[in-house]
Amino acid sequence: MKIKVDTAGLKGTKWYEFVFRFFMGGAITALAGLAAKRFGPEIGGLFLAFPAIIPATATLIKKREQQKKERAGYEGAERGRAAAAVDVAGAVLGGLGLITFALVVWLRMREWKTATVLMMASLAWFLVALSVWQLRETFCRRMRAHRPNILTHTLRSVVDRKPVANRR
């Protein structure tokens, strides 16, 4: 599957959703700082990997997909939930990149310049996340080709449902 840039998702975002994310991100960053100050860097460091974006993003994706399907006359709740679950599953792969980021900072912070460490760690995060995602895509494509019912059953059962109007 090709990676694309689509501005439609951004256009549909409400102003309060941006504000919510801003304050959520700010609150977690402040919490990490306060935890480090009160309990030391060992506890404060845990919060640097706090899932700050996921709850808001997953809820937003679910709402959007649901509305889109319902406008087309389909039942949208399950499709919305499936889309949110796919997004969160992507974060599992990104988490492997997050471990790499933390390892680079931990092992190289004392030797390298701060800016260099953060740039290299960010690059490592992106490359690991992208590579694992690409591997998973290739694996899933091959599995689907051989045993289509197993991997795609859950999502297809949601996508292929008949329109609400027809089922009544």
């Binding site: 990676i3 975002t13 997004d87």
Partner: peptide, 25 residues
């Protein structure tokens, strides 16, 4: 993350080191 497709790829950005980048400096 919202700008990118497919969703599984956009999901990678849910695990971006945003908080750590913001506080490390």
């Amino acid at each position: 993350g919202e700008l990118l497709k497919p969703k599984s790829f956009a999901g990678l950005f849910g695990a971006a080191p945003s908080v750590s980048l913001a506080t490390m400096v």
